[in-house]
Amino acid sequence: MGHASIENKTPLVLEPLFLADEEMRPLLTLVVKATYDIGRDGLTLADEQVPVNVAGEYWGVPEESGYRYEPECAFIKPATDVVLVGHACAPAPGTTEVLVALQVGPVRKAVRVVGERVWFKSMGSISMTKPRPFERIPLRYERAFGGWDRTDPDPAKHGFEPRNPVGVGFRASPRHFEEGLRLPNLEDPEQPLQRFGQAVAPASFGFVSPHWQPRASFAGTYDGAWTQKRKPLLPKDFNRRYFNAASPGLVAPGFLQGGEPVALVGASPLGRLAFALPRVIPKATVELAGSEDVHPALNLDTLILDTDEHRAFLLWRASVPLRDGPHDVRSVRLEAEGLPVVSTESGEGANMEGKT
C-alpha cells in the first residue's frame, strides 16, 4: 500500500512518530505542539509554530549541562510536566536576592535566587561571602546545588550529587574544603545551604536529565537477570513515570486540561505574569488498515514557559497500538476545538515512515 496521508486542519504542529512500548509492540505516537507568545496581557497564538524537538537541546556540553529542552519523543507521559526556562530578574539595582515563584493550576514552586558567593576560611572557621548584586541569573541546574567532588587524588574516590551532577557546591565530606568554592545561586527557600559540607536538595525549574535521580530510579533494574531474560526489552520493573522530566514539585497530578491559571513572579523583565492556559482540545482521527477509525485521546502532558524568548509551548500526546507497523496507518487527521480551522492536507506520509 502507499504512504499514509496527513491532514492537519489546525495551525498547530503535528508530528507522527513510529515508536514501541515496553514490550517492543509497535505504536503510532502523535505529538501535537502549540507555540504561544507571552505578553503582558497573556498568551496569543504565535505566527510561527515551532516544530516538535525530537532531538532535544542541551544548555552546553551534554556531559556538563542539563537540558534546555528535553527530546519531545516519549511514547507516553503519565502526567503533565511543567517547566520554566529563563532567568531570575532583579527588580532594582543592587539586588542580591529574589524569590522566583511559579504556579500553574495545582502545581506551585518557589526558588530563592542569590547572587554570587564563595566559601572562605578565616581564623579556623568556614564561612560564606555576602552575595553580590546581580541583574539576571539563569534558572538552570548548573546554578543549583550539586556537581562533582574531585578533590581526592585517587579518581576512584571521586563522588557526585546524583540528583544534579552538573551543579555547584557539592563536597563528599566537610574535610574536602576548597578556598573560593562557589555556592549555588538557586536554593530551596525551605532548605538553604548554611554550612560547608551540607547536602541540600537541588532547586530549579528545568528538565531533569534521564540519568539523574530521582528520575533514573524509575528506569528499572538492569542486572544479570535482565541481560539473560529481558534484553533488549525494558525491565519488568520499568515505571512510566520515568518519562516525566519536570523538576520535583512541577509534575501535575493527572493532566492539565487548559484554562488553568498561571502566575509567575521574578522571572521576566515584564514583571509579574498572570494569565490562563488556552482552552484548546486537539482531536485526532487515525485510519488503520482493516479496522475502524481510531480517535485517541490527546493529553496535554508538557507545558514549557520560556521567559527568555517569552514563548509558551504546549504539547499533547497520544499513542495508537499497531498490528504490524507503519504500513498499518492509512491516514491521520487533526482538528481542534478553540482554534481557527485551516486546511493543510499533505503527502507527509512519505516522511512518516522514517520518523522513529
Rank of each mutant, 00 (worst) to 15 (best):
Gly290Ser: 13
Val251Met: 13
Asn53Arg: 13
Ala336Lys: 01
Val82Lys: 03
Gly290Tyr: 11
Val32Glu: 10
Glu260Val: 03
Glu353Trp: 10
Phe170Ala: 04
Ala312Ser: 13
Glu142Arg: 10
Ser173Asp: 15
Glu63Val: 07
Ser343Asp: 15
Gly206Lys: 04
Leu183Trp: 01
Gly169Asp: 03
Ala4Asp: 06
Pro62Lys: 00
Val83Glu: 00
Ala225Tyr: 13
Phe255Pro: 04
Gly259Asn: 11
Ile281Pro: 00
Ala156Pro: 01
Tyr36Glu: 12
Pro51Ile: 10
Trp59Gln: 09
Phe255Asp: 08
Val104Glu: 01
Arg150His: 10
Gly197Arg: 06
Val294Glu: 14
Val118Thr: 15
Ala34Gln: 09
Tyr69Phe: 14
Pro26Asp: 08
Gln191Lys: 11
Leu270Ile: 03
Asn8Gln: 05
His327Lys: 09
Val168Gln: 04
Lys121His: 10
Thr285His: 09
Thr35Arg: 07
Arg117His: 07
Gly86Tyr: 05
Glu15Lys: 14
Asp301Pro: 03
Val107Ala: 03
Leu181Tyr: 00
Phe275Leu: 07
Cys89Thr: 11
Leu12Gln: 03
Glu72Asp: 09
Val332Met: 08
Glu309Trp: 10
Phe170Gly: 02
Pro184Tyr: 00
Ile137Gly: 01
Asp21Ala: 07
Leu102Glu: 04
Ser217Thr: 13
Arg333Lys: 11
Glu97Trp: 03
Pro326Ile: 09
Val294Trp: 07
His87Cys: 06
Leu181Gln: 02
Ala46Val: 06
Glu15Gln: 15
Thr356Ile: 12
Glu70Cys: 02
Lys236Glu: 15
Pro278Tyr: 09
Asn244Trp: 02
Ala20Tyr: 12
Leu102His: 01
Ala267Lys: 01
Glu345Gln: 14
Leu17Phe: 11
Gly259Leu: 12
Cys73Ala: 15
Pro93Tyr: 05
Asn185Phe: 02
Gly56Thr: 09
Ser346Cys: 12
Ser343Tyr: 14
Ala284Lys: 04
Val294Pro: 01
Ala4Trp: 02
His327Pro: 00
His295Cys: 10
Gln194Ser: 13
Pro155Cys: 12
Leu233Ile: 00
Ile126Lys: 11
Arg108Cys: 08
Glu179Gly: 08
Pro340Met: 09
Ala246Ser: 15
Glu116Leu: 10
Thr356Met: 14
Glu178Ala: 11
Leu12Gly: 02
Tyr58Asp: 10
Glu63Ile: 06
Pro174Asn: 04
Lys157Tyr: 07
Arg333Cys: 12
Gly124Met: 10
Pro210Glu: 15
Ser247Pro: 09
Gly147Ile: 06
Arg68Phe: 03
Ser291Pro: 03
Leu183Thr: 07
Phe160Ala: 06
Pro155Lys: 13
Ser217His: 10
Pro93Ser: 05
Gly249Gln: 09
